[in-house]
Amino acid sequence: MLDLRLYMMQRLSAMFMAPFVLVHIAVMVYAIQGGLSTEEILGRTQGSVFWFLFYATFVIAVSVHSAIGLRVIAHEMLKLNGLTLSVLTWGICLVLLFTGGRAVTAVTLL
């Protein structure tokens, strides 16, 4: 159920995600050290092109990676095939892109 193209998309998205996860966790740990409030955090992220690009890329990588991973599980465990499987894959990808995109814009746009 995974051809080479999907396999490469999943592996390459994982390569992107690994440093993103580490930076995300490191920044969270750093940010709460001094008791930073929500307003202070948003003051630093809103309007920041860097954090917008960082989390936007993160959300795209997560959406692609998760959709392909769940596609394999749905095929092997639920025996989904063909159009149903494609709709599920794209559906998961689009839902994650939408919800992740909302979060990114809320945190980084002014």
Partner: peptide
Amino acid sequence: VSGTGGCHN
């Protein structure tokens, strides 16, 4: 070996 039933599964 790169199709939908290939080695990547």
